[in-house]
């Protein structure tokens, strides 16, 4: 079992963050409701930009190229995630472990070269 006591500061931090953010959101709402007038109407609640009603849906269709960038990001993100256990266990795995990781990196470098050369990383 891992010694969890070293995570206590993070836990306390999380608890404080949760409490404070909840307070920041709900306190003004509660205070305004108690002190001010609270009578929403249909017109008041409509969304608007610059004083006009919104012209279109705020969500617009993304280009498929964002998706390609995100996929490439996931792949290299995973590669980086694999580096972490490798780095801390290198004294246990020795040369075999080192060579293993170098081959792995080489495979992905070839992929990177492919992505670069085919222009997948270029935007326009």
């Amino acid at each position: 079992m891992v010694d969890l006591s070293q995570y206590l500061p993070i836990l306390i931090f999380l608890a404080i963050a949760l409490a404070m953010s909840a307070a920041f959101v709900f306190l003004p709402m509660g205070v305004s409701r108690l002190t001010g007038t609270h009578n929403p109407t249909a017109n008041k609640l409509t969304e608007y930009e610059c004083g006009f009603p919104a012209f279109e849906d705020s969500r617009s269709q993304f280009d498929v190229r964002f998706y390609l960038v995100a996929i490439l990001f996931i792949i290299f993100d995973l590669e980086a995630a694999f580096l972490f256990p490798w780095a801390v266990s290198l004294d246990l795995t020795g040369w075999a472990g080192w060579v293993t990781m170098m081959i792995f990196l080489f495979e992905l470098i070839i992929g990177f070269a492919y992505a670069w050369k085919t222009g997948a990383l270029e935007w326009e």
Partner: peptide
């Protein structure tokens, strides 16, 4: 396969 990847990248 790795060599073919490079060929695909450079050769188009």
């Amino acid at each position: 396969g790795l060599i073919l990847t490079l060929i695909a990248a450079w050769g188009g």
